[in-house]
Amino acid sequence: MLMHLTLWRDGALRQLEVRLPPPAGLELGIDNWEGASVSTALQYAQRVFEPNLGYALSCRRGLCKLCAMRIDGEVRLACTVPMHDGIRIEPAKPRLALHDTVIELSLVREKGVRARSVSDVRPERKE
């Protein structure tokens, strides 16, 4: 099972190909990768092949929308999309990319504050 990853790392997009072994015996409860989500495959890849691999994941059921990424050219939620051979995975929006497939999706970050800068909010008492 081959994954073509396009990752945002150190300020540039780069390619990474990951070949996943047959999943039987990996305690994923599946005999083929089609029974797993893209998120599960990315988790496996981080654990076994590429410790630095960045992916976002929270609810695992399509509700929190944190794991949005571009899959085969379309922005989708990685936790709900089944794997297939030759799948292409990229950051949903390269200009919002933070690390690998992780993009800036904050709902509360002040506009204009650069995504990568250290959060520097200061306490302010309400009058």
Binding site: S58, C59, L66, L105, V108
Partner: peptide
């Protein structure tokens, strides 16, 4: 806490509004 006049910082492990069990 904010209504009571305090300065308040919410610290969250993930993104606010995109993580935690409430959504699920």
């Amino acid at each position: 806490a904010r209504q009571a006049g305090a300065s308040v910082l919410v610290i969250n492990k993930g993104l606010v509004g995109r993580s935690g069990a409430t959504i699920t």
